[in-house]
């Protein structure tokens, strides 16, 4: 019970920390912040329910006015901005990633986590994000989608990394990777 709460809070803090630390360079020299990597990991490590709660907790603190979104953004303005869908999509994406990771328990940990991160952390997150953008900018869905595609390659790399990192975590701390509990 207490451990569920602290795991959820720690992953909310991890999502925040990954947006705050200096950018890390992914393969091919693409510098991106690792915040969505944190969202993917919340799902692959904590599973659907706890992962979504971690992302929700993170969201709540951003809305309360903490500069935890990558680039030090935060506050209520996020909800009126064009990226609102990506932001609101965090818990949805974490839930989907966790749900798929749990369903793929037959597969090796890393493969399951990688597939789940692509489907949950990219497909689901972009559906939410693009929908939000098309509403705020008053543009068709496909036009809004075109504006977002620049970030897809970076996110694919992050999904692969999420799979690798989850494997390492599963080996190092099997009892903490509760998506396979």
């Amino acid at each position: 019970m207490e451990r569920d709460l602290t795991l959820i809070a720690m992953f909310a803090a991890l999502i925040a920390a990954l947006g705050l630390i200096p950018q890390v360079t992914l393969a091919f020299g693409v510098p991106v912040t690792a915040q969505t990597l944190g969202v993917m990991l919340a799902g692959t490590v904590l599973g659907a329910k706890r992962g979504a709660l971690a992302a929700l907790l993170f969201m709540a603190l951003v809305l309360l006015g903490l500069p935890l979104l990558s680039g030090g953004r935060g506050g209520l303005g996020v909800l009126a901005g064009p990226t609102v869908g990506f932001f609101v999509g965090f818990p949805v994406a974490a839930f989907a990633t966790g749900w798929i990771t749990e369903r793929l328990w037959r597969l090796p940990m890393g493969l399951a986590a990688g597939i789940a991160s692509v489907l949950g952390g990219i497909v689901v997150l972009y559906v939410c994000g693009i929908t939000g953008m098309s509403i705020i900018l008053d543009r068709g869905w496909l036009e809004a989608a075109a504006l977002s595609t620049a970030f897809v390659p970076g996110d694919v790399i992050k999904a692969v990394l999420a799979g690798m990192i989850t494997t390492i975590l599963y080996r190092a701390r099997p009892r903490s990777v509760v998506s396979r509990g």
């Binding site: 602290t6 809070a9 990954l18 950018q23 690792a34 990394l161 701390r173 903490s176």
Partner: peptide
């Protein structure tokens, strides 16, 4: 520049801290 590899010890810190704080 630091690579994604530092995310692993960072996540392990988070998992272990969760246990200690619990």
């Amino acid at each position: 520049r630091p690579s994604w590899r530092i995310v692993v010890p960072l996540a392990i810190t988070a998992l272990d801290d969760a246990d200690h704080v619990a």
